[in-house]
Every structure is written in structure tokens, then in C-alpha cells.
Amino acid sequence: MLLTMDKELIQIIGVTLKMSFFSTLISCFLGLPLGVLIERGRFWGRRTLKKTASTLMGLPPVVAGLIVYMLFTKYGIFGSLGLLFTVEVMVIAQVLLITPVVICLTSSVISVSGKHLSETARGLSLSKGKTLLLFVFHNRRALLSVVLTAFGRSIAEVGAVSLVGGNIQWKTRVMTTAILLETNKGKFTFALALGMVLLLISLIVNIGASLLTKRRDSDD
């Protein structure tokens, strides 16, 4: 019993990490450049995009789940893909939820130093590519916390993933949905243990990240 539990626990952690990793990766891949462009770019529809992103930031996870569910259900537009109740569709729902957050946070990070940095870059006649890279590199510490926020959102998310994932044992069950289930079954101790593991993962990721960007010659 304990042994199978351990095996299952490891499997659940594995699914959770896989889902969170890919959700974070994809939403950052989309959201970071978009966030920079929304703040510094000059293109048509920029304001609309910014408003849309900040509105979507408030999208309730269950609603995001519902939308994705309807798109991927048997009779939905993407129904033929047969992705409902898979980790893939959970990632899709997460990307829908997290990308707006990444866009908005990135744009506010960039806005702090944006004007001066872009004037300085222009003064040095930096190319567009080098300027974009500079924006990301110069703000890397703040942007890393954007990435961590995205990861945190995705690992903590319940509503959307239980809806589109279905909380299927050995397949789409993740930490949060498992905690929900165990709590409903009255197994509080196990639910709490799962919660601890979740917290531990968060801690490890954060420590790793702060080690990565530590400044050696400064107080902060």
C-alpha cells in the first residue's frame, strides 16, 4: 500500500513538474517578447493588445478551463485531436491563463527603465536585435521573477487543470487535484503531506533561481 502510494506520489510529482515546466516555457516564450514589444514597440493595435492582456490577467481559471474544454471536447473545433483529459490540453489551458500574466508583468518591468535604456541604446546606434536583447538582459533579474511567478501560478493551479485534465489517476492527476481529492476523501494527513511537497518544490526552484542571478559585488 505504502509502496504503491510512493510510486504514485512520484508519478504525480512527475506529471506536475512536466505540466508546469512546459506551461511556463511556452507562456514565457510567447509572453516575454510580447511584453517587451508592447512596452517599447511602435505598431498598430499595441494599446488594444495591452488592454486585452491586462483584462485576461483577471480571467478566472475555471472559465479558462471551460473555454479550453469546449474547444477540445468531442464536438469542439479541436475535438478531432482527442486531446481532452491529457497533459497536453492541461498545458494549453495553463498557457491561456499564464501568458497574459507574463505579458503584463514583463511590460511593467520594462517600463521602469525603458525610456532611459532605449535612449541610451539609440545614442549608441545599437541595432534593433541588440536593443531587444539588451532590454531582456538588463532586466534579467526582474524578468526571472516573472518566470518564477508564471511557474508558481502554473504549479498551484487547480480549477482549469481538473476540468480539462479530469484528474485521472496515473495520467493527469497533479499535486493540486490530488490534494483536492484526498481532502474530499477525508485523508487530511496525506493531503497535507502533498501540500508540503508542493511547497518544497517551490522552495527549491526559488533557491535555484536566486543562486543563478546572485550578484557577487553588491549588497542586493
Partner: peptide, 13 residues
């Protein structure tokens, strides 16, 4: 043209 703004920023590197 080379231009140094009044609030020239040092890059974080």
C-alpha cells in the same frame, strides 16, 4: 551621430 542622454543608463553587466 553618437548621443549621451542626461540620464544615461549603465547596463546591468
Amino acid at each position: 551621430i553618437l548621443y549621451m542622454p542626461q540620464k544615461s543608463l549603465c547596463f546591468d553587466m
